[in-house]
Design a protein around this nucleic acid. Structure first.
Length: 426
RNA sequence: GUGGCUGUAGCUCAGUUGGUUAGAGCGUCUGGUUGUGGCCCAGAAGGUCGCCGGUUCAAUUCCGGUCAGUCACCCCA
C-alpha cells in the first residue's frame, strides 16, 4: 500500500516466525550435506559478468534477459548471481584443484533474476545447492541424486517426483538435433507459434512445450538417449543402475530438457504437486564449465533447490510453522525508580541463566498495560518491582500460567528461578 | 517482456445502482476505583477508498492511464 516502504517487486521481507523455518532448513541442509562429506562455501553475491555468460551460455534465457547487470565505478560489468554453480566453480578454480582432487561443497544464499514474479518465483530467491567438482564418475551422479532425495525426506518434503534424463556430450548433439529436426519439421505447421520458432532457435525445447497439441507431437519424438554415442549411453545406464541399486525412486523423462548450456550427461529435476505452475523444487545435473581465461573445462555434478519452494511444498503438506514466544521472562518496572533496577536485573538474568529469553518493559506504563504486554510476549514468568519491592529488597515473581505469585528476596532470585527452571520453562 | 484477476482502517473484508460525517470483525490503546495479564463489558485512536488524469453539478463508486499485488505464459529453483 505505502509504496515507499514496500519491498521492490519480487522481493520480500522475512520475519519471525518464518525466519525460524529458514534457519531450520539451513540447519538441516548443513547436517545432511556434512554427512556426505561436503563442506560449506560462501562465495560473493556478484561476480564479473563473464563468469555467468561463459558458464551458462550466452544464448540462454537467463543470460539474455534475466540478469541484473551493472557497471561498477571501475567500468567493469558485474552481475548479481542468477544461480550458484558458476560462482562456486570459479571459487574452486581459484583455489586450485590438484590432479585427481575433488571438491565437494554446498552453499545457500540469495540469487537474482529479473523475471516477472509468480507463485514460487521471485526476483530475489534463495537456493541451497551442492557441487561435486573434479570428477567424471556416473556413481557420483547417483550419489548426488540420492543425497538430494535424502535431504528432502529429512526436511519433511515428501511426494516429490525425481525425473532424470541425459543431455549427452557436445559431440552427441548434432546427430540428436538433426533427428529432432527431421521428426518435427513435418509436424511444425500444427504446433504452437513458440514451437515453430523453436524449430530453428532451440529445437530441444520443443520436447517439453506445455501446449497440448505440441505435447502430442513431442510424445512421438525419437528417444534421444538411443541416438547418442556408446559411451554416453553407458554412462547414463550406470547412473540408472546405481539409483536402482540405492533404492531411489525416479523416472526417466526422455523429454526433460534444462535451460543452461553447461549441462552434459545426466540432468534431473524434482517436481512437486504442491507448487503450482512453477513446480520444480530442485534441478541439477552434470556440467562442464570453461571459465574466462581457463585452459581446461571443469567438470562436476550438482543441484540447486529453491528454498522458497521447499517451504511452499512443505506447507502444502500441512506442515505448520511453530510460533515461538518472544520471551521466557518479562520484567515489569513500576515507577521511574524501578526502571534502572529492571534494566540491571534483565542483564543479570541473561548473564546467569543462559538460554532464557528476557524482555524488560521500560515504558513506565500501568501495571495492567505491562502485564498485557508480558502476556502477549508469551513469557512464563513475570518479575515485578515497584517502590514497595525495592524498599523491601524483594522481587514479586508471578507464574503467568498458574497466576500464583510470591515475593522472593532479591538475593535469592537467581537460585529461586534456577530451581524452577524445568517446570516453568519446559 | 505478454495476458487475466485484484487494490477500501495494522490485518481479513463489507459498502456506495455516482450524492452530505465510508462500515464490520480481529488487532491496538484507555477505562471497568488505589500496583496485576489471558475471558467479558465500555470507550477511543486509526482511512489522501493505491496514484494521476478524464466524464459529471457531484466520483471511493463510471472511463483511461499508471503503480503495486496475484495468477498464468515465457523460462526456471
Amino acid at each position: 500500500m505505502s509504496s515507499a516502504t514496500e519491498p521492490l517487486p519480487g522481493t520480500s521481507d522475512c520475519w519471525e516466525p518464518e525466519v525460524l523455518d529458514w534457519i531450520e532448513l539451513e540447519t538441516a541442509a548443513r547436517e545432511i550435506f556434512h554427512r556426505y562429506g561436503y563442506a560449506e562455501v560462501r562465495t560473493p553475491i556478484f561476480e564479473r559478468t563473464e563468469v555467468f555468460v561463459r558458464s551458462l551460455g550466452d544464448e540462454t534465457d537467463v543470460v539474455q534477459k534475466e540478469m541484473y547487470t551493472f557497471t561498477d565505478r571501475g567500468g567493469r560489468s558485474l552481475t548479481l548471481r542468477p544461480e550458484g554453480t558458476a560462482g562456486v566453480i570459479r571459487a574452486v578454480a581459484d583455489r586450485g584443484l590438484e590432479q585427481g582432487e575433488e571438491a565437494r561443497v554446498f552453499y545457500f544464499g540469495p540469487m537474482f533474476r529479473g523475471e516477472r514474479p509468480a507463485a514460487g518465483r521471485r526476483r530475489q530467491f534463495h537456493q541451497v545447492g551442492v557441487e561435486a567438482v573434479g570428477n567424471d564418475s556416473p556413481w557420483m551422479d547417483a550419489e548426488c541424486i540420492a543425497m538430494l532425495s535424502h535431504f528432502l525426506d529429512q526436511i519433511g518434503v515428501t511426494g516429490g517426483k525425481i525425473k532424470i534424463n541425459s543431455r549427452g556430450l557436445p559431440e552427441d548433439r548434432p546427430q540428436v538435433s538433426a533427428a529432432l529436426a527431421e521428426y518435427f519439421t513435418p509436424h511444425a505447421p500444427g504446433m504452437c507459434e513458440d514451437c515453430q520458432r523453436r524449430l530453428t532457435t532451440n529445437i530441444w525445447r520443443m520436447l517439453d512445450c506445455k501446449n497440448p497439441a505440441c505435447q502430442e507431437v513431442a510424445a512421438g519424438a525419437p528417444d534421444l538417449v538411443s541416438l547418442m554415442g556408446d559411451d554416453t549411453r553407458a554412462f547414463f545406464a550406470r547412473v540408472c543402475q546405481s539409483l536402482d541399486s540405492l533404492g531411489v525412486d525416479y523416472e526417466v523423462a526422455p523429454r526433460l530438457v534444462r535451460g543452461l548450456d553447461y549441462y552434459i550427461h545426466t540432468v534431473f529435476e524434482i517436481t512437486h504437486p504442491g507448487l503450482g505452475a512453477q513446480d520444480a523444487l530442485a534441478g541439477g545435473g552434470r556440467y562442464r564449465i570453461v571459465l574466462p581465461g581457463a585452459k581446461k573445462p571443469v567438470e562436476g555434478i550438482g543441484f540447486a533447490a529453491g528454498m522458497e519452494r521447499l517451504l511452499l511444498a512443505r506447507a502444502s503438506l500441512g506442515r505448520q510453522t511453530t510460533a515461538v514466544a518472544e520471551a521466557d521472562i518479562a520484567i515489569i518496572s513500576l515507577g521511574e525508580n524501578a526502571i534502572l533496577p529492571g534494566l540491571r536485573l534483565a542483564q543479570e538474568l541473561r548473564a546467569t541463566l543462559s538460554g532464557l529469553r528476557v524482555k524488560a518493559d521500560f515504558t513506565g506504563r500501568s501495571l495492567k498495560a505491562q502485564m498485557r504486554g508480558a502476556n502477549r510476549s508469551g513469557a512464563r514468568l513475570a518479575l515485578i518491582r515497584g517502590d514497595n519491592e525495592l524498599a523491601e529488597n524483594v522481587v514479586l515473581c508471578r507464574d503467568m500460567t498458574t497466576s500464583e505469585q510470591q515475593s522472593v528476596p532479591a538475593a535469592d532470585l537467581m537460585a529461586w528461578i534456577d530451581e524452577r527452571r524445568t517446570t516453568l520453562f519446559a
